[in-house]
Simulated assay, not measured.
Amino acid sequence: MENEPLVFELGIAKGKPHSYRKTPRKPVCPFCEVDQLTDIYEKRGEMIWLHNKFPTLRDTVQTVLIESNNHAGDIANYTPTYNRKLMRFALACFKKMNDSGKYRSVLWYKNYGPRSGGSLEHPHMQLVGLKQLDGYKYLQQNNFVGISVFDNQDVEVNIATHPVQGYDELNINLLKDSGQDLWSDWIQSGVKYMLNIMFNGRCTSYNLFFYPREDGGICAKLIARFEAPAYFVGYKLSQVDDEKTLQVEAEQFRHFFDNGSQLE
């Protein structure tokens, strides 16, 4: 399998705002200036789906979904009701882009925190259409299965035994559209668990990736972000915790959800 990298256009990136750079003054957040936004596709209350003003990747169409007008907002602090609306809107936008037939593949993901690879703090997701590349070619089906946390006819939750990067990745699978609200609740609970419990509060950044399943569902995968392991950087070898540790983590996550962590 030959490597096919995405080409990054540095010239376009030079004018891009960045929340995490050390500057004398705090940069102005473009997502807070709603009246200045252009190229908007759809709006639903505070949620806005629009064209990315800085399309830094060649042969792609890059779009942004602004989650909220609250600059400090995040999945972890939205009300469950708002988070459910957000996930429904984002899923609808993804399906519209994915079903358009214009792209070889469409990527949907979220960066949160200074180590996530993101540039702006304001809560947002990204939906990127790849014209030439298969964005999923390096993934395996076993990346989305693992030690069970929860399972019913609509939603299945597990801790990955074959993670994409490692060490502990939470897979939250939407099996049927009727489970969207429960799926959203598990995602919110997973974010809270990852930021507050899983690493004893040491995790400040995460990525949330969404993958279309072969059965028509969607897998939401939560990956904590620290420094990337050398084995992954140099060899694309992911690492995973031992079976006993994963079992304990699964029990703790299930208990966390059952105790109402996702409720208002």
Rank of each mutant, 00 (worst) to 15 (best):
E214K: 11
G135V: 08
T204Q: 15
K236P: 00
P123L: 03
D185T: 00
L130E: 06
L208D: 01
W186I: 05
I187H: 02
G217A: 04
A224C: 09
Y211S: 01
N158D: 15
G216W: 01
Q165N: 02
Q132P: 00
F209R: 11
G216Q: 01
P212G: 05
N200P: 00
L208P: 02
M194A: 13
K137M: 13
P163Y: 03
D215A: 04
G146D: 12
Y231R: 12
N200G: 07
P229L: 06
D168C: 14
H162W: 10
L222E: 09
I187R: 03
A160E: 07
H122K: 05
S178A: 15
T204M: 13
D177P: 09
N143T: 06
M125F: 12
L182P: 07
G216N: 10
D185S: 12
D181E: 13
N158Q: 08
L127N: 08
L195M: 14
V149Q: 03
F232W: 04
N200M: 05
H124G: 09
F199D: 13
N171H: 06
Y206P: 08
D154W: 05
N173Q: 11
Q153R: 14
V157H: 05
V233R: 12
T161H: 09
L175R: 13
I197W: 02
P163R: 04
L222S: 02
W183T: 02
H162R: 13
L195S: 01
T161I: 09
L130S: 08
V191C: 05
E227I: 10
P163I: 11
S205H: 03
N196T: 15
F226D: 09
S205K: 00
G135K: 04
A220Q: 08
Q153E: 15
F226A: 05
D215N: 10
L139Q: 10
G146H: 03
V233A: 13
K176T: 14
N196M: 11
L127P: 02
Q141Y: 00
K236M: 00
W183F: 09
V128L: 15
N207I: 07
Y206E: 07
N171P: 11
Y193P: 04
N152D: 15
A160I: 08
P123A: 07
L208W: 08
G216K: 03
G234F: 13
Q165V: 15
D215R: 06
L139K: 10
L222V: 14
E169G: 03
D154M: 12
D168T: 14
Y193G: 05
F144N: 00
R202I: 01
F232A: 03
C203V: 14
G217I: 01
G190V: 07
K176G: 02
R225F: 02
D215E: 09
H124I: 08
G190Q: 10
P163H: 10
G216S: 04
S178H: 12
F226I: 03
L195T: 07
Q132Y: 11
I223W: 00
N196A: 13
Y136A: 12
R213N: 10
A160N: 06
S189G: 15
N152E: 11
Q165I: 15
D154V: 05
G135R: 04
G217Y: 01
Q188P: 01
H124A: 07
F150R: 01
D154K: 13
Y206H: 10
